[in-house]
Design a protein around this nucleic acid. Structure first.
Lengths: 112, 112
DNA sequence: TCCTTAATTAAGGAGTTGCTTACATGACCG
DNA sequence: CGGTCATGTAAGCAACTCCTTAATTAAGGA
């Protein structure tokens, strides 16, 4: 489980962590804010954040005694690529569009 | 970890299982054929297949003493939906195109 | 300085994963 | 029937996951 893609999928395999990422989509949050919707302890939250950080899905910045967490979506690109490549036939058309849009956007990363 | 989406992401979190799915993309295979590229034991293969089956990603059919495994991509649609919804801003445009293509294809599943 | 707040680290426990070897099932084949 | 091939089940083990409570670090305010 040493490769990045596995770490990302593993991070996404937990509903609490997915909910955290969804929350972060609307903007940065402190650990306390992230913890608020859940009934689990703060250390449990910290551990989930560690998993997300290890997968590259969040970034933490210390400001005074608060840690601001921000979403990093780049790892999701790799995950998306894998999933799209393995969806049925019509998705090959979809992949084509993906690549066209990617070119449009200017990030010229060709996949293997 | 009772929900389908978590089971799918968890199934994808292992390189061996991802390689198996990639292999199945080119057509059905027996357990032996699937096992061939890997150095792990047959029971280990069986256990990986159980994980994939639990996530709905493969289907097994018994033919004589062979079990033919086939890929089922539907669960990947849900995974794809989640990932696309959480990729950066430009992906909102991407999502739009996704939906347009979906309508073009005729599967009218609106997401929440 | 002392207290509070925000968060992490430490230690431990129940359950799961990913592997192993040994054994069981079940179909075909002489 | 007995042997072999394809696969699955059982049992066990080290490592990891996800949670807990207790202790720790570190900043800010009285």
């Amino acid at each position: 489980m040493t490769d990045r893609l596995s770490l990302v999928f593993q991070a996404l395999a937990d509903p609490t962590r997915r909910a955290m990422l969804s929350r972060l989509r609307v903007g940065a949050a402190t650990v306390g804010e992230l913890a608020e919707p859940f009934e689990i302890s703060r250390p449990a939250i910290s551990q989930h954040l560690k998993v997300l950080e290890r997968a590259g899905l969040i970034e933490r910045a210390a400001q005074a005694q608060w840690r601001s967490c921000t979403l990093r979506t780049e790892p999701l690109d790799e995950a998306s690529e894998w999933v799209e490549r393995h969806r049925g036939e019509w998705n090959e058309r979809f992949d084509l569009l993906d690549e066209q849009l990617r070119r449009l956007k200017g990030t010229g990363d060709d996949r293997a």
